[in-house]
């Protein structure tokens, strides 16, 4: 690659990052001022009625939670794709999400009264177990095949989901499991979302180590040759992914395809260099989920549709379109 091309690409990358970030900021502001009860900026400043309480206790936490979740789920997907060198591997196609769900189902039965923090730890540990099992499996298969790898993840996820369903059916909480699975921010208020900051921190750590993930993705021999501790990098990356998946599944629920769509969209725009890609993935992830949540809150105003459903349908259609376009 000639320096001129590299500079041109970098400039293009910064432009895209700039517009995505600006879009995220605009949507964040819009998101804060949308809701069933009115809380205009003037009311908040004058502390009229309940406006300030609504603002501080509900609006702001919700928008912050969306940014943290949207950005970090997308970044988690990008890390998995870098580590496995497969565009179609994401927490939802590697057994990670289903493992977290299984963890939550088990906690619900064993100690239903346990604190949210405890549930999150269990979900994260399960997510990590599921992900490492997946990594172990695909390393044994030694296939880099674009279909075989995610298909193994999907099957692994199916096995874990069947155990979770077994438990949920046995103890009659299948409907609540379904309800809780759809990503939804309507319950996000101050005091109920703060653990998502941990998820945000995981995203930042991922950015710091982005180059190593790219190297490790090339393969064990190559990474060892250039002086990288391969196993530690893989496990480290998967720990980050599992923290994100475990915590977001408990606090927010699942956002279908998010870890799959956003990184693929971003790499269509700027290519595969992780260090350049990750900030854009984070910005697009945050902006996209903010937009989805705004739509979820206005489509049947003042009632809400879970954002997970909105993303499941619109995101799915977008992804199908991208898929068909990129192959024709």
């Amino acid at each position: 690659m000639t320096p001129a091309v590299a500079t041109g690409e970098r400039r293009r990358g910064s432009r895209i990052l700039g517009s995505a970030a600006a879009l995220a900021v605009v949507l964040f502001v819009v998101s804060i001022f949308i809701g069933a009860s009115s809380a205009s900026l003037a009311d908040v400043i004058r502390d009229e009625g309940a406006a300030r309480t609504i603002f501080v206790e509900s609006r702001l936490p919700r928008s912050i939670a969306i940014v943290l979740a949207g950005a970090s789920i997308a970044v988690a997907g990008a890390i998995m794709q870098a580590l496995t060198q497969n565009r179609f591997v994401a927490p939802s196609t590697a057994g990670t999400t289903e493992a977290a769900i299984l963890g939550v189902a088990l906690v619900t039965v064993v100690s239903p009264a346990s604190a949210v923090g405890y549930k999150m730890v269990v979900a994260t540990v399960f997510a990590l177990g599921g992900t490492l099992l997946f990594v172990w499996l695909i390393q044994r298969v030694r296939s880099r095949d674009i279909i075989v790898v995610p298909l193994i993840g999907i099957m692994l996820g199916a096995v874990m989901q069947s155990i979770a369903w077994f438990i949920a059916l046995r103890f009659s909480f299948l409907q609540s499991l379904y309800a809780w699975l759809i990503g939804d921010f309507s319950g996000t208020i101050a005091g109920r979302y703060e653990l998502l900051y941990v998820v945000g921190a995981a995203g930042v750590i991922a950015y710091v180590f982005a180059d190593r993930f790219t190297l490790a993705g090339v393969g064990r021999d190559f990474s060892v040759n250039v002086g990288l501790n391969y196993d530690r990098t893989i496990v480290g990356g998967m720990v980050l992914v599992s923290i994100v998946a475990g915590i977001t599944v408990v606090v927010v629920g699942t956002i279908p395809f998010w870890g799959l769509i956003v990184p693929n969209l971003a790499s269509l725009l700027v290519g595969d260099n992780q260090r350049r890609l990750l900030p854009i993935v984070a910005a697009v992830g945050a902006a996209g989920l903010l937009a989805g949540d705004i739509l979820a809150r206005t489509i049947r105003y003042p009632a809400e549709v879970p954002v997970g459903t909105i993303i499941g349908v619109l995101g799915g259609l977008t992804f199908l379109y991208l898929l068909i376009r990129s192959r024709s």
């Binding site: 309800a179 279908p256 395809f257 879970p306 997970g308 459903t309 499941g312 799915g316």
Partner: peptide, 8 residues
């Protein structure tokens, strides 16, 4: 996934 999220 789309059908599942609608069903959910």
């Amino acid at each position: 996934g789309m059908f599942t999220s609608l069903a959910a």
